[in-house]
Lab assay of single mutants.
Amino acid sequence: MASQGTKRSYEQMETDGERQNATEIRASVGKMIGGIGRFYIQMCTELKLSDYEGRLIQNSLTIERMVLSAFDERRNKYLEEHPSAGKDPKKTGGPIYRRVNGKWMRELILYDKEEIRRIWRQANNGDDATAGLTHMMIWHSNLNDATYQRTRALVRTGMDPRMCSLMQGSTLPRRSGAAGAAVKGVGTMVMELVRMIKRGINDRNFWRGENGRKTRIAYERMCNILKGKFQTAAQKAMMDQVRESRNPGNAEFEDLTFLARSALILRGSVAHKSCLPACVYGPAVASGYDFEREGYSLVGIDPFRLLQNSQVYSLIRPNENPAHKSQLVWMACHSAAFEDLRVLSFIKGTKVLPRGKLSTRGVQIASNENMETMESSTLELRSRYWAIRTRSGGNTNQQRASAGQISIQPTFSVQRNLPFDRTTIMAAFNGNTEGRTSDMRTEIIRMMESARPEDVSFQGRGVFELSDEKAASPIVPSFDMSNEGSYFFGDNAEEYDN
């Protein structure tokens, strides 16, 4: 783990906690998980779902989305002020799938948001429990990260689609708070800032007046979040320049895209947490497990152990491969979309394939898809080993990566060399080191050039047997250095459309 220093740990961010010791953190995270579980059980009762239907990941996603929508204050306010045809701002819903006479049927349900809020609060001892809501947002974000390569979004903001390893959390809503900021990748933060800068260039009043003052505060806050992700002084200094700019424009845009590229080699610290679907927490609570009393951590053995003992089902389209669908969801559960496939294969105990080789589309089923041909199958979400999630980018030494994705962002704290394609990355730096950030740029390029592919990161860190909950005997895996390590390699994943 990167030293926490003055930073709060993510469990504290996750639970809005002030400084807590490890036991208190485990208890408050457990409380959050228990609340999600209780809410899910109650919703299944309301909807009269069978046990099997309640364990269907598509039903879980609909129920999670309903509660997130019920608590989305800004959108609710907007919907009330701008009524649109056929949208009731006070209601929320989605597809629920039921097994009827041996076939899967889709039923569109509609609930009062007020009623959903009441059920959620009741499951969370009367609190709004925003930490639990954020947790579900991060699960949705991790699922998107594993399912889609955001080529269009990258290109629109002047970045290269091969930089997708920097895009963790790119679909997280803005209201996801400190826990959300911690899991956002460098590219995601750059993209958010670039969008602001572009608006400022096109709209003279963007930075002016009372609204402009708020915009400015948001801009500086985002700059500080991004600065905190960088691990070298030169990158941090460049972020200070971007933040202090009187009138952010093209120079800042250039600096930010430069920094994003540099992060492929001088990786930023991005938190990883295993956020599971509500249909995993519900049955665990129903079986009598007391998360608050037992304590829970999002970055240790607990999620692995929970998945070892969970039964989750998914709808499967006619030509999809259930094992591939399982891999997709497994990666999402562990926030591992940008991790090295060699490491993932070792931990999972079966070969993890790149996205383009998977015969599976996303987990969600569109409303126009034919239910007649839908089957369902068990998702295999178990693992051979477990490993500690990392909050750091690993040290800054790398190795060759593949054509589709030119770097990785480690999820697990496991000893290995970190793949990246130096030639491709360095070719993108057209040696432009003039301007006010020239000395920093020169320094950053120097550090990137001296990074050695064969150097090892996370020295001495290994994986653990599932029986080793105290992480007492690390097993340090050895990897084939020459092997392909990137998930979005030469990829044809669908595009994420909101």
Rank of each mutant, 00 (worst) to 15 (best):
A263H: 05
W139I: 04
Y78H: 11
P303L: 10
R208K: 11
V285P: 00
L341Y: 01
S450M: 07
M374P: 04
A387K: 02
T45S: 13
Q168Y: 04
F346T: 15
F206E: 09
N144A: 14
K113W: 08
D255Q: 06
K236F: 02
G300D: 02
E14A: 07
R99D: 07
S326V: 06
F412Q: 03
T378Q: 09
L358Q: 05
L264H: 11
M196Y: 06
R174F: 03
F39I: 11
V312F: 12
L193W: 11
S269Y: 07
R384Y: 11
Q42H: 09
Y487T: 02
L379P: 05
D88Y: 11
M371D: 01
P95D: 09
V299N: 08
G282R: 00
K77V: 15
E292C: 08
S297D: 07
N483E: 07
A493R: 05
N224H: 14
R118K: 15
P322G: 11
R38F: 07
E494M: 14
G93R: 09
Q231H: 15
F230A: 02
M222C: 09
L418P: 07
G187Y: 05
N124C: 09
W139P: 03
M13V: 08
M159F: 00
E294C: 11
I265Y: 03
H334D: 07
K357H: 14
T157K: 01
N309H: 09
F429Q: 03
G177I: 05
A27H: 13
F258P: 02
L68W: 08
C223N: 11
D127S: 12
G300I: 03
A337D: 04
R175S: 11
R261E: 08
P277S: 11
R213M: 14
V463Q: 07
R121Y: 02
F420K: 01
F206W: 08
C279W: 06
V186E: 06
R305I: 12
Q20L: 11
A286P: 11
M167Y: 00
P354V: 15
L47Y: 01
F338G: 01
R162Y: 02
E454S: 06
V343K: 03
M189H: 14
Q4D: 00
F230I: 11
Q122L: 14
F291I: 10
E73N: 13
W330Y: 15
